[in-house]
Computed example of a mutant assay.
Amino acid sequence: MSSTPIRLVLADDESLTRGAVGALLGLESDLVVVGEAATGDEAIERIREHHPDVAVLDVEMPGLDGAEVAQWVANNEPGTRCIILTRHARPGVLRRALAAGATGFVTKSAPATVLADVIRRVHGGGRWVDPDLAMTALMTEASPLTDRELEVLRSVDASGTASDIAARVHLSPGTVRNYLSSAMQKLGVGSRTEAVQVARDRGWL
């Protein structure tokens, strides 16, 4: 075990969860929490300020989510390793986080001792993914959406119109609306935002 503690930034929008995890990790002699954050933007501020060895990031936070923070870290603070915490074992979340550069993925139901061991593992250059989540990801059902429908869903944002999406994917607004309608019908949802969420959760985007 190294004589120099592993320095951590902990980001979670639930203050009770953040406080409990921080307190439990603080009991480990080789770990020290140097900064805490309640949002993705605050997480980036703390990481920029402290240059931690490891950032432990809740996957769902106001503003930037954990995967987006991990992507920022990969681009701007390559010396920091990222671990994603999530309450929901969704394969799409796993794939997005790993693609963003995260090297650990732990469910919030895991004991603090497991999280501490994962922190040590990724700090040493390894990777770790919750086994149950990894199995779920491997068993993810095939997507019923066409490549064009997936392309359109990837271009959806909260405020954009069909014309905005059309400009990004080089299609007419009417064609975009048709693809969105078809995707929504296949997924059994009532809005394009819901369609994006379902597709992400199932690992199709």
Rank of each mutant, 00 (worst) to 15 (best):
M1D: 10
T4K: 11
I6K: 03
I6C: 01
L10F: 10
L10S: 00
A11F: 10
D12S: 10
D13L: 07
S15T: 11
S15L: 12
G19M: 09
L24Q: 12
G26L: 02
S29G: 08
D30A: 04
D30E: 14
L31N: 02
V32I: 13
V32C: 09
V34K: 11
D41Q: 15
A43L: 07
A43W: 02
R46M: 15
R46C: 08
R48M: 10
H50K: 12
V54L: 07
V56I: 14
L57K: 09
P62E: 09
G63Y: 02
E68I: 01
A70P: 05
A70S: 14
Q71L: 12
V73R: 06
A74L: 09
E77S: 15
G79V: 01
C82T: 10
I83Y: 08
T86I: 00
T86M: 03
R87E: 10
A89G: 15
A89K: 04
A89R: 07
R90H: 08
R95E: 05
G101K: 02
T103L: 08
T103N: 04
G104N: 01
F105D: 02
T107C: 03
S109Q: 11
P111K: 06
T113G: 03
A116W: 06
A116H: 00
R120P: 03
V122W: 03
H123K: 12
G125K: 00
G125I: 04
D130M: 06
D130R: 08
D130W: 08
P131M: 00
M135N: 09
A137W: 07
T140G: 15
L145K: 12
T146I: 05
D147T: 15
R148L: 14
L150K: 14
E151N: 12
E151T: 15
V152H: 04
L153R: 02
R154T: 02
S155T: 10
V156T: 00
D157E: 15
A158E: 15
A158W: 10
S159Q: 15
A162M: 14
A162L: 12
D164A: 13
L171D: 02
S172R: 10
S172A: 15
G174K: 05
V176E: 07
Y179S: 04
A183M: 06
M184F: 03
M184S: 09
Q185D: 14
K186M: 03
G188K: 04
G188L: 09
A195P: 06
Q197V: 13
R200K: 02
W204K: 06
L205I: 13
L205M: 01
